[in-house]
Write a protein that binds this DNA or RNA. Structure first.
Lengths: 218, 218
DNA sequence: AGAGCAAATCTTGTATACAAAAACATTGAC
DNA sequence: GTCAATGTTTTTGTATACAAGATTTGCTCT
């Protein structure tokens, strides 16, 4: 099956939720969305199931589907797990990583640096993502790679906010370099620790996240 | 939404796949299943989506859905991640666990011991599950708890095979006791290490898993 | 007889029609 | 005026009908 149409709709809806067009608690009306997308209710419902499984909406039987943005507590939990994922990937990758991948990491990092110097947040964001995906892949565990990618993707909109923190880009950059060094030296524990700390939400990052959530809730 | 009917069907299908009625590569026919369950194709398709998201079947567009049992490599990857999950839960729980939960763990362990002595594999299996779920919960991270439970559930049929290993029950028991001790002492690193090793597939366990997979493939 | 093409058949994906349940509003009683 | 009960109206869940793509079969041509 798969229904390409439903897939496209799911993606679009995801975007609409992230962009804030639909916010927490909103009910998603099948009829309205069907009209809006010019399709019947069927593909809309299929799209809903996708979103429900990825946790973006909650489906209450005989009531409808509701947008469900994670609260601060859930978000912190998710970041905590993400940090652990990164750490595990790093630890495993430190002994399994290939020379090509190390080169690719350095390459991604170089582009990151260019983006920072040019002040291009979007470019930095893109290369940062590439950097992390390489490490997931080099964990040598396809299942872990999938799970890490899934959660990374889910946290995307919130991380984006974080990276806009002034001065954060530069710090993030230097952390990347430490991580590459640990991986190059095959220092498993250092790679795990640095990656965990790189992603962990603490200190100033925490307050910034709180603030962004509050403003989004208005 | 949620469709109670589709839910029941998804569960039933899951059971049929685990029980071996449908095996790897089989196509699941919508018409046939609809007839068999006495419903229309719609709920069957909804059930398929659930199964696809939990990874039990693969949906190929315009081709159909196919049962997709994990191979040995994928399975090892999943067990590796499960071991890490357990370790993380243990590390977090060691500082967050409540006295009530510790009592519950001891209780579950006592029942485990009874089951071992009575030779009741099923009872042991049930209590073992309870034991682990308590630890997931006590990680104090609801998201982590959910992810760990999900993977635990997915690996259920394979773990069951493992526990039938002669003498494994006894060893598993003593490992449980070590874990409870580490948690009681709030020894984070010991709890993490013991739980990781408890779940990790290595040595004899690996060979047994291999053998069970081969026999299932026939 | 075998390869290639075309028509028929089967299967998936989508739309619509229908049934049941929940939300809503109106009416009536206290 | 408020609360409850009942009837109306949405809205979800399911069935069926229809359309488009894939597969298979059989025919033709070499």
């Amino acid at each position: 099956m798969e229904m390409r149409r439903a897939d496209r709709i799911a993606e679009t809806l995801e975007g609409l939720i992230f962009s804030g067009e639909f916010s927490d608690g909103d009910r998603l009306d099948e009829h309205r969305l069907a009209e809006r997308f010019g399709v019947s209710r069927t593909p809309i419902r299929e799209a809903f199931q996708r979103l429900a499984l990825s946790g973006l909406v909650e489906a209450i039987p005989r009531r409808g589907v509701f947008v469900r943005q994670p609260g601060i507590v859930e978000l912190m939990d998710m970041f905590e797990v993400m940090a652990e994922f990164e750490g595990i990937c790093g630890r495993l990758a430190s002994s399994r990583i290939s020379d090509d991948a190390l080169a690719a990491l350095n390459d991604a990092n170089a582009r990151c640096r260019e983006a920072v110097e040019a002040g291009e947040t979007d470019a930095y964001y893109r290369e940062n993502e590439r950097f992390h995906h390489i490490i997931y892949r080099q964990s040598g565990n396809a299942f872990l790679e999938g799970e890490a990618s899934r959660l990374h993707r889910r946290l995307k909109p919130f991380r984006r906010v974080q990276l806009q923190l002034r001065g954060r880009l530069m710090q993030s950059m230097s952390e990347h370099e430490g991580i590459v060094k640990a991986l190059t030296d095959a220092d498993a524990e250092a790679a795990a620790r640095l990656l965990r700390e790189h992603v962990a939400v603490q200190g100033e990052k925490f307050h910034h996240l709180m603030a962004s959530l509050k403003s989004a809730a208005e």
